[in-house]
Simulated assay, not measured.
Amino acid sequence: MSPTQGGQSGPSVTERVLGILSAFGPGAESLTLSGIARTAGLPLSTAHRLVGELAAWGALERGEDGRYRIGLRLWEVGALAPRSLGLRERAMPYLEDLYEATRQNVQLAVRDGHEVVYVERLAHPEAVRVFSRVGGRMPLNATGVGQVLLAFAPPAVQEEVLAGPLPALTPRTITDSGDLRRTLAAVRREGVAVCDGMVDLLSLSVAAPVRGEDERVVASLSVVVPSAGAEPRMIVPAVRAAARGISRALGAPSARRRPAGVVTPLPTAPADASP
Rank of each mutant, 00 (worst) to 15 (best):
P82M: 13
V262W: 09
G41E: 01
V263W: 13
E190M: 04
A151E: 09
A81F: 04
H114Y: 06
D97M: 04
V110W: 08
L266Y: 02
A91K: 09
P155I: 10
L201D: 14
S22R: 13
A238Q: 11
M138V: 07
A255W: 06
P171E: 09
V116F: 11
H124R: 00
S12T: 15
E100Y: 09
A260M: 05
A55Y: 00
M234Y: 04
L85N: 05
R258E: 13
G136A: 11
P125M: 10
E53R: 15
N105R: 13
V210T: 07
S227H: 15
L72T: 00
R90M: 10
P82H: 09
P93I: 02
V77H: 05
A91F: 05
V110C: 05
G7C: 07
F24R: 11
A186W: 05
D196Q: 09
D196A: 14
D97R: 15
V225A: 13
L221F: 07
P253Y: 07
P26K: 07
T264Q: 08
G261Q: 09
Y68N: 01
V210S: 11
L150C: 11
R16M: 14
V187E: 07
E96D: 13
D214A: 12
D179L: 12
G58V: 00
P232D: 13
A186L: 10
D112Q: 12
Q158F: 02
Y99V: 07
R257F: 14
R257N: 03
G27L: 09
R111Q: 12
E53L: 12
L149R: 14
V116Q: 14
P82N: 05
S30G: 00
R257S: 12
Q104A: 13
R182L: 04
A168T: 09
H124L: 00
E89W: 13
A241G: 02
S274R: 14
E64W: 00
L80Q: 13
A79G: 06
S177G: 03
V217G: 07
A56C: 01
P125V: 01
T175H: 08
R67L: 05
V13T: 12
A37M: 08
Q104M: 14
R248H: 12
G10L: 01
P270A: 15
L42E: 04
D176R: 15
R103T: 00
N105K: 11
E61L: 01
E15T: 10
R182F: 01
P259E: 15
M138R: 11
F152M: 10
L18C: 07
S12R: 00
P232Q: 10
R233H: 11
L150Y: 07
R67W: 02
G245S: 15
G10R: 03
P139R: 04
I235G: 03
V51F: 02
A151G: 06
V157H: 09
G25D: 08
Q158C: 10
V116Y: 08
S9W: 08
R233A: 14
A185V: 05
G251E: 08
P155F: 03
Q158A: 14
V263Y: 09
A186G: 10
T102M: 13
A40T: 03
G19L: 00
G191R: 13
L87W: 03
A219N: 11
S84H: 06
V110E: 08
A193F: 01
V17Q: 03
L31D: 06
G245T: 06
